[in-house]
């Protein structure tokens, strides 16, 4: 049970993000929720590749040759950069929405409802 603490942290982080996405009405808070879910997924990838008594997969001055799995770390690097790109795009869209509606509340942004 206590050995699985990293996976529990991942589950709690993803649940907090989903709660924020589903129950908040502010666009900035929804974007925060998306970012939190993304952090949970990144942490899940890193935790999935861990091996006991291992070091980071770098040979420069390494104390031993037992290393953690490197592929998940490379994919996490990809995921982080794509997360930054989508975050910037979403925040820009929220800025444009705020410029024309003077609010970021999704229940008041109603032009598309006809």
């Amino acid at each position: 049970m206590i050995d699985n603490l990293p996976f529990l942290v991942v589950a709690v982080t993803i649940l907090l993000g989903l709660y924020t996405i589903l129950l908040k009405k502010d666009l900035i808070k929804i974007i925060m929720g998306i970012s939190i879910v993304e952090s949970g997924v990144n942490l899940f990838l890193i935790v999935l590749g861990y091996r006991w008594d291992s070091i980071a997969p770098i040979f420069t001055g390494a104390p031993s040759l037992a290393m953690v799995m490197p592929t998940v770390q490379a994919l996490t690097l990809t995921s982080i950069v794509i997360g930054v790109a989508t975050l910037a795009l979403m925040l820009s869209m929220v800025m444009i929405i705020f410029r024309y509606y003077k609010t970021t509340d999704v229940s008041k942004v109603t032009k598309l409802q006809g």
Partner: peptide, 28 residues
């Protein structure tokens, strides 16, 4: 529902000993 599923998955995955690591062992 999602919380029960995620937490149940979290306590059942073994931490620290990945099952399939052939590709990563080859890379290392």
């Amino acid at each position: 529902i999602l919380g029960i599923g995620l937490l149940f998955t979290a306590v059942t995955i073994p931490f620290g000993s990945p099952a399939m690591s052939d590709m990563d062992d080859y890379f290392i």
